[in-house]
Amino acid sequence: MNDAVVSRSVAIVNAQGLHARPACLIVKTANGFDCELTLHLGGGSADCRSIMEMIMLVSPQGAAGRVEARGAGAEAAVEAIASLFADGFGEAYD
């Protein structure tokens, strides 16, 4: 069992912040992996499989933090989640 923690910095670039739709996207992505996935953002942290915990971080555009994974496929998982952020969850930037 590989228990090394893998982490990647993320930031919210889309205008509407981390609302329900992006959170739903993160949950869907996280469910494709077996590892533990935690999002640390703006002073709080949330389980990437919990839509509620993530939206309750109330993270607006500009908020920064990191996504952390531990367990099987950790590397690929943080990569996948980080690219959702980088992509602005497919939403508008301005």
Binding site: A20, R21, A23, C24, V27, K28, N31, A46, D47, R49, S50, I51, M52, E53, M56
Partner: peptide
Amino acid sequence: TEIIGTYLAFLGDEATL
């Protein structure tokens, strides 16, 4: 469709619900 899709995420939320 998308709005209804988020319901499934709520229904899978172990940590909070």
